[in-house]
Design a protein around this nucleic acid. Structure first.
Lengths: 225, 225
DNA sequence: GTCTATATAGGGATAGAC
DNA sequence: GTCTATCCCTATATAGAC
């Protein structure tokens, strides 16, 4: 009963995937978005992020310095996706008219919901918003939220009332996702009714995006939080 | 340089405040609501709760079994305050008419905002909503959210669209609090504008309730998260 | 009813090899 | 570019005295 892997002394080092740092960075950020989105800043561990990214825990820390810094980059990435997406839509040519704002609002709303495809974006954003107590994360989250407000006001020309309604719908959307309403769509009539009302034509998008909790590898599964 | 407190061997045991368990329980729950509301389930420690309640950390655990159980009781308490408050308003006699729903909605909204006085209620609720990933906490949070939905539908007679709007406003309200917008009311014009628009006549209530971060004792201050 | 002391595990971060 | 080994602090929970 000697130690494992002694069969031959001449094997080369195991095939560790070496990929460019920039690419690895994005991999980690994508994985971290999901993990932080689910468990929050404090609830997530750098080890969970590492596993999700398929690398070792120290490497995650090595690449981002600290867990806090990693979270800040996740937040910045999420805000960038959101803001960039919105700016594109705002920049699209559109005819002026009475329902101009409403039309644009609907487009932005649809784009927002579509962000759900990029797993983790919306939830990690929400997790950041809820971390207002943390001086550094809180400040960035606040600044990001206000940037969105200003963009809608100054670039899209929305009146405050309209923005308020839009943001409110967004926060409800985030909350319904965070609370995992889609998980009980089939079992709870109230949940189904609320979701149909809140998601409208995007219901199918939401349901398919939130279905299938990816089981990763069947092997060493972290035994939940 | 002998040890402290040796001046007299005849002093009585230090004045440890002994109060009834039920009362202590409520003290701890109130303190825990604030701490969990600020830092979330994972971000808060039982020691922080204990300090806030003015007792020892092991006593907190002793009384509630586990941190998770403590959080569940905080959540139950918050839901109870909310639901009880709403039920009272719904039960109030009111004349039937076209604007019946809108009037009731406004009253419920005002009551919701007033919950801010009970520090921690709204934020710990929000922290629970965002913890959907945790099997046990998530289940309770989801159930609580749906209970509110059903109450508004079945007891208050709201149509789904109306409930959706109401809940959306509530989630926006929670988010603005969580993100600590009131802290920058004087320094950021966009923040001020959004808050005036979102809080309306309740702006003063919100501002005064969120002002003055209580500095506790000036002495041994926990060096932040 | 409440505390002190402490066992014990978990997790962020560092050192250094390859 | 990536890993293994490991340090060390923090935090939950338990034991048991008063």
């Amino acid at each position: 009963m000697s130690s494992v892997n002694e069969t031959s002394g001449t094997e080369l080092t195991p095939p560790i995937e070496r990929i460019p740092a920039a690419e690895r960075r994005e991999q980690i950020l994508a994985a971290a978005s999901v993990v932080f989105g689910e468990r929050g800043y404090s609830g997530a561990t750098t080890d969970q992020v590492a596993r999700a990214a398929g690398i070792s825990q120290p490497y995650v820390v090595r690449m981002f310095g600290t867990k806090e810094n990693l979270f800040l980059e996740v937040l910045a990435r999420a805000l960038d996706r959101l803001i960039t997406g919105f700016r594109q839509i705002i920049a699209e040519p559109r005819e002026r008219g009475d329902d101009e704002i409403e039309l644009l609002s609907a487009r932005l709303g649809a784009a927002y919901v579509d962000l759900i495809e990029d797993r983790g974006i919306l939830l990690s954003l929400m997790q950041a918003f809820i971390s207002g107590h943390n001086p550094v994360i809180g400040a960035k989250a606040r600044a990001g939220f206000l940037e969105i407000y200003r963009m809608m006001r100054d670039e899209a020309g929305f009146p405050p009332e309209e923005i308020r309604g839009f943001l409110a719908e967004g926060m409800l959307f985030n909350t319904l996702l965070a609370i995992r309403l889609p998980d009980v769509y089939d079992d709870d009539e109230a949940a189904a009714e609320l979701m149909r009302c809140a998601f409208r034509g995007k219901l199918d998008v939401v349901l398919s995006a939130t279905a299938a909790a990816p089981a990763e590898h069947a092997g060493t599964q972290t035994p939940q939080q």
